[in-house]
């Protein structure tokens, strides 16, 4: 395997990424790695440091609320962190999003973005009422800089409260506005592993939505857990096929493209 080194990019201006941290968010390191790897420059910043110094926002073109378990999901997933974000940094976030910036909320990050009102809808307990870690197949159904050039992708979910829900009227509006970005489907991985397409009972199979003209993406699945070839559940099988065909073994998997798209947006 060729080691996945964070490349020192040839890009003139590496976009700067703010990766939120603190209170139980926990996917900061790998999210930072993903951005750095594709040529951005990511900083992990504790929310209290932002509250103390909101001017920090000005430095960044991209903001990411990574996955995790902020406040242990204690008041409902994402709520306590979402409230903190809204109460202390609501205005700064608004200003940040008025600029031509990008934002992503992954898993717990998506829950935080809905709880803070940046994205609409709610993420309820999975229909099984249990935490679930498995791979899913996604169909891209909306427009977003984050998803440019991607039609389908298989990456994993890991959540207890990922069932997207919205009242029918709002849902129709969301659809009309083309903001339903990602839908679960029974694709390559679900067929291979013989699992249902929709893992959590999400309404209209929704896995991710957008806001701010597609610049803000919230999604339950984890692209950073499907960025390396060896993260795939079937990689040892594919490796055998490639070895026998005398072909090289890849290092990347499709999840990395989401991060790459974000960098491309700025260069």
């Amino acid at each position: 395997m060729t080691a996945l080194k964070a490349k020192s990019s040839k890009l003139k201006a590496r976009p700067k990424v703010l990766v939120f941290a603190g209170y139980g968010l926990n996917c900061e390191e790998e999210t930072k790695f993903a951005f750095d790897y594709v040529g951005a420059e990511a900083d992990i910043v504790h929310i209290n440091d932002l509250i103390e110094n909101p001017k920090l926002f000005a430095k960044y073109q991209i903001a990411a609320v990574p996955g995790g378990f902020a406040y242990g999901d204690d008041l409902g997933s994402g709520r306590a962190y979402g409230l903190k974000l809204k109460n202390h940094l609501g205005k700064e976030l608004e200003k940040f999003l008025e600029r031509d910036t990008l934002m992503i909320g992954i898993c717990n990050g998506f829950q935080v973005l809905t709880a803070s009102g940046i994205l609409p809808g709610a993420l309820l307990e999975n229909s099984s009422n249990r935490y679930l870690d498995r791979w899913v197949d996604l169909k891209v159904t909306g427009k977003s800089p984050w998803l440019k050039g991607i039609k389908k992708l298989s990456i994993p979910i890991a959540h207890g409260e990922g069932r997207y829900f919205m009242q029918p009227k709002e849902l129709a509006k969301l659809k009309k506005e083309g903001r339903i970005a990602l839908k679960y489907e029974k694709g390559e991985m679900a067929k291979l592993l013989n699992l249902p397409g929709n893992p959590n009972g999400a309404i209209a199979d929704i896995a991710g939505i957008t806001g701010y003209n597609g610049r803000v993406l919230g999604l339950m699945p984890h692209p950073e857990r499907g960025m390396f070839f060896t993260q795939r559940p079937d990689w040892t099988n594919i490796r055998e096929k490639l070895l026998r065909a005398g072909k090289p073994i890849p290092t990347e998997a499709v999840g990395i493209e989401i991060f790459r798209n974000a960098v491309k947006y700025f260069v």
């Binding site: 790998e30 993903a34 935490y131 890991a158 592993l193 857990r225 559940p233 079937d234």
Partner: peptide
Amino acid sequence: IAQQYDHEVQASSIIKPLQGRGR
């Protein structure tokens, strides 16, 4: 158990608790 225990956080997963098509 494997499905309710997050085994992919930290992006380090190589050989997972459930293996192959048959899980």
